[in-house]
Amino acid sequence: MRFVHGTPTRPAAAGFLLAPLLGGCAGPLSALDPAGPGAAAIALLWWGMLVGAALILLGVLLLLAHALRPRAAPRRVSERLMLGGAGVLFPLVTLTVLLVFALRTGEALLPHRSAGDRPLVVEARGQQWWWEFVYPDFAGAPLYTAGTLHIPAGRPVDVHLSSRDVIHGFWVPRLAGKLDAIPGHRTVLRLQADQAGTYAGACAEFCGLEHTRMTFTIVAHDPADFAERLTALAAPPPAAEPEVAAAFAAGCGACHSTDARTRSGAGPNLAGIGRRLPGDLPALLARHPVPRPGHRMPDHAVPDAAMLARIAAYLEELR
């Protein structure tokens, strides 16, 4: 097919001009750097609205500037044109187009249960100030992780959201919009990552003292890797040396499980933590008993520094 008007070069030129601008839009939490169909549809909506809004603003300001120019005699201005036309008709037409487009976009992003989709269902339970993720049906039994949610790339995922305490907002900007996790409610967010990769998530709804630090990660795997990763998590954790196991059980074990097959107590499940926080663990444990300010850690006997280091080394093995 031939393009008589030479259009093929235009997007390239536009891309060249926009590249620095769009480059500034990249970032681990950037809604303008979409990596999934939901975020992409919304980003497209944004760019369209930005251009439209900029033109309207410019038009209004030019008209204002024109109106403020000094002149000798008053002018006749048609009320019908100014108010009926610019004030009512123009926004009415523009907004109708926008509303229809917005509703259609929104409808496409909903977690509909249509035939072809086969979404993976996972759960995300918010609590002050971390997320617990549940894979309700992996090989017949649920799996639990904290802080990291594993999903397959290229397949829609329905995240069922709930909360154990206050309202939290589940948000992975590069994949989809956000949705609140509300105690007493169950909400469902559809998201999808087009490529394997790591996507940052944040809590969007103010949820108390450590709202800021309630971050999490979504790791999208190629389908085969995804099954492999969950299988690895479903395996029993490596055995610790007896003293380490005893020290862990005496303190940490009251709240934290190290086995993805069992639900953790009050604290996050540590399965896979060696992969999630490589290298950070000794420093984190050294700040024991409060590895992060604001996190609620019950009083318990704290092992000495040497034992903490050994526990950290053991946790490194939970991968």
Binding site: L99, V100, L103, R104, G106, E107, L110, H112
Partner: peptide, 11 residues
């Protein structure tokens, strides 16, 4: 009333 034509009622 416009949204009546485009949006699903309960989802």
């Amino acid at each position: 009333g416009l949204p009546l034509f485009f949006a699903s009622a309960c989802q």
